[in-house]
Nucleic acid binder design. Structure first.
Lengths: 196, 196
DNA sequence: GCGGGACGTTAACTTAAGATAAGAAATCGG
DNA sequence: CCGATTTCTTATCTTAAGTTAACGTCCCGC
């Protein structure tokens, strides 16, 4: 008896692998729905965090703390997988915090449940590979942007690419953090661009 | 009849997965030894590059070209896997070039051969996952460094971390590129640090 | 061993980002 | 709807990186 609440997750996974009913039924018992109020933490720095989420509604940010300052390095939107990948994989305390920027609704499961599927199912192992590859490709491109583009170019990149929603819904001082600059600097870049 | 030339690769793979003889024999027929003279290209921008290498000897750099300028973003040493991961995975032309900085000796195989193993062997599929995870973790840390640390801090990071060999053997103008700054700027940072 | 090229440093100048502070604008909670 | 907080902009000053160019050194090939 498949629960329709979980369907968006099944569809998202199906974009990575061909998933039959039997495969899906391996995972479904591990799923739960979870609601997070605005400003609460999905992942907290210092804790070993093994929970993986799939965001149905709302958005979240992912930040590191240094000298008391928060550096926001990633945003999550509907349809994204959310986790402290490093903490889940390595079973070590998370160095990052993931905070709900709005009220959020997620489907969650424990990474250990997925790891069990890795052992028993080649299909799920493949899913794990494809997710990791997807992640690596995104990170590589992000890194190249940081190394090769100026702050202004990185901001322009955000404006047209498919990442446009980042700027639409996100307060500017978080965006500036994502770009690796200060809020003041982003404001100046925007002012410069308007004159052109 | 296992060829001892390929042993270092088998050992490297064994650090990721438990590999029995049968598993290994699936891969071995696809392996070749390859020598690259200094300054030749292992991967060339614009070509679809599906070759994966395992570096036995020598070192290589990985760079992107922009406005005629080369930006070196990665270095490879003995025991590293070398490939244009993105080009191999997505079967699209490589955006980067990988050049031998010294005479190099590698074990190479085609990524398609590995992909065939993904289909027939859960063990090799797992290897693919673990490699991708390893890569993603490294990229995440690199990205965080670029976002959170100043150029000077990034340079100091290079000095103590396990990445020390990067500075030992690599010309400074490549290192500066890796750090995301100009050679002149790196020279100044070094001069500043000496005074302290 | 000589000439040329690659590499690193230094200097002078330009440009842009960081820090701090103040004020305007928008948002939120009651 | 109002007051308080958050967010964004603007301005000033400081600091450091980019650019260009000159110079010295080292290394390599011929």
């Amino acid at each position: 008896m498949p629960d329709p609440v979980f369907l968006p997750l099944r569809n998202a996974i199906s974009r990575f692998i061909k998933l039959n009913d039997a495969d899906w039924q391996l995972l479904e018992p591990s799923l739960r729905e979870k609601k997070l109020p605005k400003q609460s933490h999905f992942i907290t720095e210092g804790k070993v965090e093994q929970e993986v989420g799939f965001l149905l509604d709302g958005n979240m940010r992912h930040y590191y703390t240094r000298d008391g300052e928060e550096k926001t390095t990633y945003f999550y939107f509907e349809g994204h997988f959310v986790s402290s990948y490093l903490s889940a994989i390595t079973n070590t305390p998370s160095e990052l915090t993931i905070e709900a920027m709005t009220d959020c609704r997620l489907i969650v499961f424990h990474y250990k449940d997925l790891q069990k599927l890795y052992d028993v199912s080649h299909t799920w192992e493949r899913f794990g590979r494809l997710i990791a590859e997807y992640l690596a490709i995104g990170l590589e491109q992000r890194m190249v942007g940081l190394l090769m583009l100026s702050p202004e170019e990185r901001y322009l990149d955000l404006l047209d690419g498919n990442k446009q929603k980042i700027i639409e819904r996100i307060p500017q001082h978080y965006v500036s953090s994502y770009l690796g600059i200060t809020p003041v600097s982003l404001s100046r870049i925007r002012a410069r661009l308007l004159k052109k």
